[in-house]
Design a protein around this nucleic acid. Structure first.
Length: 803
RNA sequence: GCGACCGUGGCGGAACUGGUAGACGCGCCAGCCUUAGGAGCUGGUGGGGCAACCCGUGGGGGUUCGAGUCCCUCCGGUCGCACCA
């Protein structure tokens, strides 16, 4: 007998990767595919450190799913690209003094090499980078569509300003009042910013969530982010006839409103301030403005504020109540003014206590002391509404005030319009030209892209204006409308705009005269399966949904939901902490792949824990996967050298095979890769106990292994005598009858305690099983002659005798 | 503070609608083979006990013939939001 060659992953993986490239194995025919399956994973930001295990964990999980679908007969399109614009790249480029335009292609080259090496089923013909003018031309086109539809607008707004990165940040990029990237406390600045009117779609974005097949955690994050609140606007009038509108979700507590608070930025503050209070109020406004967003936003026990010296009438009680300004009221939510009900709101309670303002209880709830925040109670001190339950009273009070024109029911969202302006260099310039006569004019679509000039001096300064403004040859242009002197918009757009539509571009990368081809889009979109990290649950995934709704509304795409199916994978941490460069705990996969091979490392990552939960990276168990692959390797080689059909199949090994196929199929479909791998291991152990496998028992195993360990599966498929790729094979089918046949072990309990086990044929009748149970020695001992009061019987599982 | 998820051997983790807790893997122990082994093979491995048995899924309580799974409560952890009226 010839010797089995040894398993040498490095050589074998290089062989198959070369063969896949030569034979275009991973490149479906995008025009003629019969069963299109668009398998998308979140494209990486090509950092200088290269692909880390977190990326590889995510990509492997998504790749396994794509390969599985392929084996089920789908034409799977699995593209890959690079999200290469943005502050990350720019800051890194600044720190090492290299131009990002030089740095990024190098990083991409590294990523590409790593992505090929791990064995992803990527269709490299359709690679894209957001920094490519052929790509961002269409990002700019997208901006123009929104601009023309009135969904992009410019306004002066208080924005989050990072004094270190010298740029504005989106609300989503501010974590605990600090810059997401550098941790510097964020300040308030007032700048002219471009916004997208995402709030216009708030209700639809919320409603649509119910139609999505998404991880429930992701849906919940989006729902909270959109933050829908039902309530009413109430009108408080001053003796001078000024009207102050407040938003409240608790109109049932209006009888307890003992003062009003306006945000310091509220436009009515000035007019409502009494002469003698002016210096104090002005000083307070200045103080608040100079505060950074951290101390402004982080709610703590100590509140600050100033009495304006004037009063307004409570619409319910008719009482005059004092008007204050305080920074615990935010200008960008509701109307920027609140009615304060200290008895029933924690913040108002703290404020009233601190400034000795009246507290009037209007809700009673047993066992609770003020402030009673719950709406479960019953009204008191509320005139005709006394005794009503809070929730019922709310509607009645609004109706009562509405009749007198003092209330309007209203829905409020926490979601803000999306600020897409960035005063930076490394992004797509916003395609607008300012003309003294015509105002803001769209760059004509034929002039796109507005290329990012290759300037050496790309450092941001603290003027609040992008470095692009310093480059006159680029900055000054003719107005496209009147031909007069114009200036370019110098802001670039947010990277989240780049990534909001990349899935539309992938199938159409070879078309240069359109962002996405209609036929291709009809065939491949929406995306069939999307797998990615929950860190993008409220940013990328929300913006993509919004952009898709807009494109649908404008007639550019036939669907309004980009990702009908989304699964969030877990996070790989190291020593209990998120991997990050600053912690110095980033694990780079290259060394592991070099030592063990891509197949072993892929499977190891998937075996670490449930894919959708993630886990802590250690390398202790990796040898277990290698041992498993070695065993499969040996079994297959031995079977290939043995005469056909030897050794013969026994019923028990056939049952095991069919049960294994059933489990691996279900688990792979559900992304439960750790248990699918365990099931294959069990099967291999069973074959080895039996002495050997044969072709009939091993071919299904090799096919099931292929999504997990594609290179070794290809090699073994060849060893088994096939001259086509294993990915042209079909996923094995199982016979439900065979899968559920065979003996089962039944638990035998007396009074709920396990006393014995019984092996019986599956499906044996209850009375026969019980008869055998009663004859069992161990059972007799515990029944001890007492009458059996009750028999609990679960088919094929257990018998419990109650005595 | 609010919301969501989670807590199982020495370790990572299994356990369908409540029904044999600890699958699978790592590690460890013993033996075989070896000049040697960070290789391979065989067997064992939740705790206690010679044993029959008893105890065990963060703590306490409950529902049930039966609870890792359901309910209440407390403790601990992870993530998200955070003065959103």
């Amino acid at each position: 007998m010839r010797d089995t060659p040894s398993y040498d992953p490095a050589a074998l993986e290089a062989k198959w990767q070369a063969r896949w490239a030569e034979r275009h194995t991973n490149e479906p025919d995008l025009d003629r595919a019969a069963r299109p399956f668009y398998n998308l994973m979140m494209f990486p930001y090509p950092s200088a450190e290269g692909l880390h295990v977190g990326n590889m964990f995510a990509f492997t999980g998504a790749d396994i799913y794509g390969r599985f679908k392929r084996l089920q007969g789908f034409d799977v399109f699995e593209p890959m690209g690079f999200d290469a614009f943005g502050i990350h790249s720019e800051n890194y480029a600044l720190s090492i003094g290299t131009h990002p335009a030089k740095l990024i292609p190098q990083n991409i080259e590294t990523f590409r090499r790593q992505l090929r090496r791990f064995g992803g089923m990527f269709d490299w013909r359709h690679e894209l980078s957001t920094t490519d003018p052929a790509y961002y031309k269409w990002t700019q086109w997208l901006f123009l569509q929104l601009f023309k539809a009135g969904l992009a607008y410019k306004k002066r707004a208080a924005v989050n300003w990072c004094p270190k990165d010298k740029t504005v940040l989106a609300n989503e990029q501010v974590i605990d009042g600090r810059c997401e990237r550098c941790g510097t406390p964020v300040e308030q600045r007032f700048l002219d910013q471009w916004f997208f009117r995402i709030t216009y779609f708030a209700e639809r974005l919320l409603q649509n969530l119910d139609l999505l097949d998404w991880s429930s955690s992701t849906v919940l994050l989006q729902r909270n982010w959109i933050g829908r609140s039902e309530g009413a606007e109430l009108l408080f009038e001053t003796p001078g006839g000024r009207k102050i509108t407040v938003f409240t979700t608790r109109p049932d507590t209006v009888f307890g409103a003992t003062y009003l608070v306006l945000a310091p930025e509220h436009p009515l503050v000035e007019e409502l301030t009494a002469v003698e209070q002016r210096p104090a109020v002005k000083a307070y406004q200045r103080e608040v403005q100079s505060k950074d967003v951290v101390s402004r936003r982080v709610g703590d026990k100590t509140k600050s504020g100033v009495f304006l010296g004037s009063y307004a009438r409570n619409p319910a009680t008719g009482e005059a109540i004092p008007i204050w300004t305080a920074d615990y009221v935010l200008m960008d939510y509701g109307t920027g003014a609140i009615m304060a009900v200290p008895a029933h709101d924690k913040r108002d309670f703290e404020f009233a206590t601190q400034f000795k303002l009246p507290i009037r209880q209007v809700i009673q709830l047993e066992g609770e002391s003020l402030p009673i925040v719950s709406d479960d109670g019953v009204l008191m001190n509320s005139g005709a509404f006394d005794g009503l339950p809070g929730r019922e009273a709310a509607g009645r009070i609004v109706a009562w005030l509405e009749e007198r024109g003092l209330a309007t029911p209203r829905v409020q969202y926490r979601l803000h319009d999306w600020c897409i302006s960035r005063q930076r260099y490394w992004g797509p310039p916003i395609p607008i030209i300012y003309c003294e006569k015509c105002g803001a004019v769209a760059v004509p679509e034929k002039d796109l892209p507005v290329e990012l000039p290759p300037i050496e001096d790309f450092r941001p300064d603290d003027t609040g204006v992008s470095p692009l403004a310093r480059h006159e040859e680029w900055y000054f242009v003719k107005c496209p409308q009147c031909g007069g002197q114009g200036r370019r918009e110098t802001d670039v757009s947010d990277t989240f705009l780049d990534s909001s539509w990349y899935h539309l571009r992938y199938p159409s990368t070879e078309f240069h005269d359109r962002p996405f081809d209609q036929a291709r889009t009809k065939k491949w979109l929406p995306v069939t399966s999307y797998i990615g990290g929950n860190e993008h649950a409220v940013l990328h995934l929300l913006y993509s949904r919004f952009i898709t709704m807009v494109l649908h509304e404008l007639g550019h795409v036939h669907f309004d939901t980009p990702f009908p199916k989304f699964r969030a994978h877990g996070l790989i941490v190291k020593d209990g902490a998120k991997m990050s460069k600053s912690r110095g705990n980033v694990v780079i996969p290259d060394a592991y792949i070099k030592q063990w091979g891509a197949d072993t490392f892929r499977m190891y990552l998937m075996f670490l824990g449930p894919f959708q939960e993630g886990g802590d990276f250690r390398d202790e168990g990796i040898v277990g996967i290698r041992r498993f692959l070695d065993k499969v390797w040996t079994l297959v080689h031995e079977a290939a050298l043995s005469p056909a059909g030897s050794p013969g199949n026994t019923p028990s090994v056939e049952h095991k095979l069919h049960r294994t196929i059933r489990k691996v199929t279900a688990d792979t479909e559900g992304l439960q890769y750790n248990t699918a791998i365990a099931a294959m291991m069990e099967y291999v152990n069973a074959l080895r106990e039996r002495g050997a496998g044969n072709r009939e028992l091993l071919e299904p195993l090799v096919v099931m292994l292929a999504p997990y360990a594609p290179h070794v599966a290809e090699e073994l498929w060849e060893v088994l005598g096939h001259d086509t790729s294993v990915f042209q094979a079909r996923w094995p089918a199982y016979d439900e009858r065979l899968a559920s046949a065979g003996d089962v072990e039944i638990a035998v309990q007396v009074n709920g305690k396990l006393r014995s086990r019984l092996t019986v044929p599956r499906g044996m009748a209850e009375k026969d099983v019980v008869a055998r149970v009663l004859a069992d020695e161990a059972v007799k001992k515990f029944v001890d002659g007492q009458p059996v009061k009750k028999v609990i019987y679960v088919q094929d599982r257990l018998v419990n005798l109650v005595v």
